[in-house]
């Protein structure tokens, strides 16, 4: 397999006043074409910050991001728009990831219209995407507060797929959903992965969820990567004390 995403020595410090907090400390990762990589860790471990740095939603204080062989650490404007055609993100809270004044359909079409689709084409594509994610066409006319969390997250996945990205960053995309809906969304993501052969960067705090879903796992603690490797291997033979505790907490 060929490398698709590489992040090198990412570093991010948040400061409020005189206090400084290192959220991401020298994190490097690489993701192959079609691979599913999970980043796990407790809240505050810096996994979401890593995802946001890679998605170019926050600026890193150091390090490089290489996507498809191109350095995107400093891209801006039109080039960044092109990057977002390749890389998309699904957020933790589905309802908040849609503008409350817009219908789900308008939200899904926005990216298409920004990338030069005509309105009618975009509407057609939106219907196709909704049905691909298991939603009926009339969901396009609904507002985010009129649908359930699971339905809204499906619509958010449809929006992320609109520009046919090669990399999907799933930032706790199933954490806000209840267990049965979580399973449905995961199986949707699994079937989409088979159909569209995308790469997933799966940010999650639940190690049990990751085991069946991802190829590789990276464990983060206090901004650092403490362990990395094949999912089964890491879960069966954790080398680090922190990983052991993380696994034990799920087993309990």
């Amino acid at each position: 397999m060929e490398e698709f995403l590489r992040a090198e020595h990412l570093h991010k410090v948040f400061s409020s006043g005189a206090e400084k907090f290192t959220a991401v400390d020298d994190v490097s990762l690489s993701l192959q074409h079609g691979e599913k990589l999970a980043i796990i860790g407790e809240s505050g471990s810096g996994k979401t910050t890593v995802a946001r740095i890679i998605a170019r939603l926050i600026e890193p204080d150091g390090g490089r991001i290489i996507l498809g062989g191109k350095d995107i650490t400093k891209t801006k404007g039109r080039e960044l728009r092109q990057v977002y055609g390749v890389m998309q993100m699904v957020f933790q809270n589905p309802v908040e990831s849609f503008d409350p004044r817009w219908t789900l359909g308008d939200g899904i079409c926005e990216g298409l219209l920004n990338h030069g689709y005509a309105r009618a084409e975009a509407d057609k594509e939106c219907r196709r995407l909704l049905s691909m994610c298991g939603l009926e066409e009339d969901f396009a006319r609904r507002y985010p507060y009129e649908v359930s969390g699971g339905q809204c997250q499906r619509a958010a996945i449809a929006r992320a797929l609109a520009l046919s990205p090669k990399l999907l960053i799933l930032d706790e995309a199933t954490s806000a959903l209840d267990v049965t809906v979580q399973a449905e969304v995961l199986s949707l993501l699994d079937s989409l992965h088979r159909e569209l052969s995308m790469s997933y960067l799966f940010i999650c705090h639940d190690i049990a969820l990751v085991q069946d879903f991802c190829h590789r796992v990276m464990v983060m603690h206090q901004g650092k990567v403490v362990e990395e490797g094949n999912c089964d291997h890491v879960i069966r033979n954790p080398q680090q004390e922190y990983t052991k505790r993380l696994i034990d907490s799920v087993l309990q």
């Binding site: 939603l57 993100m89 809270n93 990831s97 409350p100 939200g107 920004n114």
Partner: peptide, 14 residues
């Protein structure tokens, strides 16, 4: 700070 702004940005909005 809401995710829909980030989603819109990732949808290509300036």
């Amino acid at each position: 700070a809401l995710p829909f702004m980030q989603a819109a940005r990732m949808g290509g909005c300036g």
